[in-house]
């Protein structure tokens, strides 16, 4: 892979120039939090953030979107697609892996044209990170990323080591060649190696994933699911903040004139009581425990069986954001029998 070097002081000019020709998305500081948002001149880019509340998916599968508008007898009109190139700067490796997982869902089989349009017009610039006590990407094999980005920046202090992952990424580098250096010397290589090993020593949270899908299958009937669910508020915060939760519902809204309206979709969660309720009144997952189990089964077993990789990328958002403090790693670990079930919750 082509690698170049960007001196730290050149990052802001680099992004500033990109922002002139693209819609630039960056991790932005708002109060104590960091959110992905569109860049504005002078905004504070969070270069050393740990995790955003909402993951990058919101720019590809928005929380709510109109699929089409209709007028009786006149067919359907899709909303004008957004145009222009976007550059999404600052995705951590886990979030890049998550986008690749979403690609399986939305680009394979029937192609989700809304998702594809947004994905195609967006360049991805990854950014290295350091874990906190909720991160477990190293357990999920998503702590490093070798594709799925156009550029990837590793923060080595004085400089960023920049991996070039696509021709579009290369074009960006060539356009701003005055800001980068093509010389990756021994000292930089050494620093990169030190960064990798230092970072890997920083992980606190772990999850033993060996045979996890099989263990979950065997623990289907476990009373533990209902026990954990006693603490679950079913608020859906874990689903909304999960970078690979993609469930949505589709609904119509008619206008007051009764002859026109729109069809939209919006995020939902398998934790909500009506999620598997059919029109005849039968609920396929009537208990909160069954719904909580569905969420974890889908992440660690079902998606794995479908795609060969877990849907969980170890970003830690679900446990960082759970108001009930449910530690999903601990839940899974105790299902393995590695810790006592009474230690959870």
């Amino acid at each position: 892979m082509k690698t170049v070097v960007l001196p730290r002081e050149n990052l802001e000019p680099f992004l500033g120039r990109i922002a002139r020709g693209h819609d630039l998305i960056v991790p932005k500081k708002t109060g104590n939090d960091v959110v992905f948002d569109y860049y504005q001149e002078g905004c504070q880019i969070a270069l050393e953030y740990r995790r955003t509340l909402l993951p990058p998916k919101k720019f590809f599968l928005p929380p709510e979107e109109v699929l089409f508008r209709y007028k009786k007898g006149q067919g359907f009109t899709e909303p004008e697609p957004e145009v222009g190139r976007r550059v999404f700067f600052g995705l951590h490796p886990c979030d890049i892996h998550a986008l690749k997982r979403l690609d399986y869902v939305f680009l394979e089989g029937y192609v989700d044209t809304y998702y594809r349009r947004r994905r195609e017009r967006t360049l991805i610039i990854g950014l290295s990170c350091l874990p906190d006590d909720k991160c477990f990407c190293h357990s999920m094999g998503t702590d490093l990323v070798s594709d799925g980005f156009d550029l990837f920046f590793t923060d080595l202090g004085e400089v960023y080591l920049v991996e070039v992952g696509s021709t579009s990424g290369n074009d960006l580098v060539l356009t701003h060649r005055d800001l980068v250096s093509e010389v990756v010397d021994e000292a930089i290589l050494k620093e990169y190696k030190t960064f990798i090993s230092t970072r890997s020593d920083l992980f606190v949270q772990t999850l033993d994933t060996s045979g996890l899908s099989k263990i979950l299958t065997l623990e289907w009937e476990s009373p533990f699911w209902e026990k954990v669910a006693q603490d679950c508020l079913a608020c859906g915060r874990c689903s909304m903040s999960c970078p690979t939760c993609y469930c949505f519902s589709i609904y119509d809204q008619v206008n007051l004139d009764s002859i026109s309206g729109e069809r939209s979709r919006s995020w939902t969660s398998c934790l909500y009581k009506d999620y598997a309720l059919v029109a005849g009144g039968h609920n396929f997952r009537p208990s909160r425990g069954a719904r909580l189990r569905q969420r974890l089964m889908h992440k660690h077993k079902d998606f794995f069986e479908q795609q060969g990789v877990s849907a969980c990328v170890g970003c830690g958002r679900c446990q960082a954001n759970c108001p009930a403090g449910i530690d999903f790693c601990q839940v899974l670990t105790s299902l393995r029998g590695d810790i006592s079930e009474s230690a959870v919750g």
Partner: peptide
């Protein structure tokens, strides 16, 4: 079988039965 369905094309996740 019957399940809740929104999209019908394997995207929305609502009709999942295991994998």
């Amino acid at each position: 079988l019957e399940r809740k369905m929104h999209c019908g094309i394997g995207k929305c996740g609502c009709c999942a039965v295991g994998s």
